[in-house]
């Protein structure tokens, strides 16, 4: 699937009367933009960024910051690290966007950058510091209808998170993208590299491994 970055670049260039900036990105500033970036599609945003409009990247961040933050949170499980990691993902994207070919959607490409950054981070930070069941229990509302049931649910949720954290990297990334980010199998395959069949098989094995891990707890 091509998102038409090249065509959008041409259209943007013609609309803005801007030609030389396509040759050397970031070399010039556009003084009178003709296109409203807040309503522009992804391809147009990428083309505008390549042509030197810094605000195009601001718009990309605004549109995707929530998804990327949530992705990072699923890997590091705390707000501070997730926000640092999400920032790192966007800095990487900023540096790599010139090489984005438009073979996948920008969202998928950002997920790819994000998953790589997350897997690198969790690999570098072993052993994982996970929320302990007792810490989870401390957050339980004592005024809940059934506090004991609430504690048990929190403990189970913590066990699920721990089991997810112990999955092999590709299975973990597949599960996070599918279940929490609600990506299609095609998007997962594009983000992680591989076939759609392999993405489905990874999800199957991830869920199976989770079941086995939780059955032992």
């Amino acid at each position: 699937m091509r998102s038409g970055v090249g065509a959008a670049a041409l259209a943007w260039t013609v609309a803005s009367g801007h030609t030389s900036s396509m040759v050397k990105p970031h070399s010039t500033r556009v003084t009178e933009p003709e296109i409203d970036l807040s309503t522009a599609d992804e391809a147009t945003l990428v083309a505008a960024f390549r042509a030197g409009r810094a605000e195009a990247f601001d718009e990309i961040v605004t549109r995707h910051r929530k998804q990327i933050y949530q992705l990072c949170y699923r890997f590091v499980r705390n707000h501070e690290d997730a926000s640092d990691l999400a920032q790192d993902v966007f800095v990487r994207a900023f540096k790599g966007l010139q090489r984005f070919k438009g073979d996948s959607s920008l969202t998928t490409w950002l997920y790819r950058v994000g998953v790589n950054a997350c897997l690198n981070r969790v690999a570098a930070k072993k052993p994982l510091v996970l929320e302990a069941p007792m810490e989870a229990a401390e957050r339980v509302d004592p005024t809940a209808v059934d506090p004991l049931q609430a504690v048990l649910q929190h403990e189970r949720a913590a066990a699920v998170r721990e089991a997810i954290a112990r999955l092999p990297p590709k299975q973990r990334a597949t599960l996070v993208l599918r279940i929490y980010q609600e990506c299609s199998h095609e998007e997962i395959a594009a983000a992680l590299g591989g076939t759609v069949g392999a993405a489905k098989a990874n999800l199957f094995h991830a869920l199976g491994n989770l079941r086995r891990a939780l059955s032992r707890t």
Binding site: A54, F57, D58, V61, T62, R65, K66, Y69, Q70, Y73, R74, H79, S83, A86, Q87, F90, V91, F94, A157, V160, R161, I164, L175, I179, Y180, L207, L210
Partner: peptide
Amino acid sequence: AHADDAPEPSPLFWDHFSTRVREAT
């Protein structure tokens, strides 16, 4: 697994986050 929600940051966080990214880039 799906039932495990991630906490939502404060609405103020997002503008702060965009500013951080802008400064970093």
